[in-house]
Amino acid sequence: MGSARKHGNTSKMLHQVIEGAKSVGAETEFINLFDLNYKECTSCCSCKLKNSKSYGHCGG
Rank of each mutant, 00 (worst) to 15 (best):
M1E: 15
M1Y: 07
M1G: 01
M1Q: 11
G2I: 00
S3N: 05
A4N: 09
R5C: 04
R5H: 12
K6L: 00
K6N: 11
K6V: 02
H7T: 09
H7R: 11
H7V: 03
N9G: 04
N9F: 07
N9C: 09
N9K: 05
N9S: 06
T10W: 12
T10P: 10
T10H: 06
S11F: 00
S11G: 03
S11H: 02
S11L: 00
S11D: 12
K12W: 14
K12P: 13
K12I: 10
K12G: 11
K12E: 15
M13H: 12
M13Y: 14
M13D: 14
L14I: 08
Q16Y: 09
Q16R: 06
V17D: 02
V17G: 01
V17Q: 12
I18D: 00
I18S: 00
I18N: 01
I18Y: 00
I18V: 13
E19N: 08
G20Y: 15
G20R: 10
A21Y: 14
K22T: 13
K22S: 11
K22L: 05
V24Y: 10
V24P: 07
V24A: 03
V24G: 04
G25E: 15
A26L: 06
A26C: 10
E27K: 05
E27F: 08
E27H: 05
E27S: 14
E27L: 05
E27W: 13
T28A: 08
T28R: 01
T28F: 01
E29H: 07
E29K: 03
E29W: 06
F30K: 00
F30Q: 00
F30G: 00
I31Q: 00
I31T: 04
N32W: 11
L33S: 04
L33P: 08
L33Q: 05
L33G: 01
F34Y: 13
F34M: 10
D35I: 01
D35S: 02
D35K: 03
D35H: 02
L36Y: 08
L36H: 08
N37R: 06
N37D: 06
Y38L: 10
Y38A: 03
Y38K: 02
K39I: 05
K39D: 13
K39P: 15
K39S: 11
K39F: 08
E40C: 05
E40H: 08
E40T: 08
C41L: 11
C41A: 12
C41W: 15
T42W: 01
S43P: 14
S43V: 09
C44G: 07
C45F: 15
S46I: 07
S46Q: 13
S46K: 15
S46E: 14
C47A: 01
K48W: 09
K48Y: 07
K48N: 13
L49K: 15
L49W: 00
K50D: 14
N51Y: 09
N51V: 03
N51I: 02
N51Q: 13
S52R: 10
S52E: 12
K53T: 06
K53W: 05
S54F: 13
S54A: 10
S54M: 03
Y55L: 07
Y55M: 11
Y55A: 07
G56S: 02
H57D: 08
H57R: 03
H57C: 03
C58M: 07
G59P: 02
G59H: 08
G60F: 11
G60Q: 01
G60C: 10
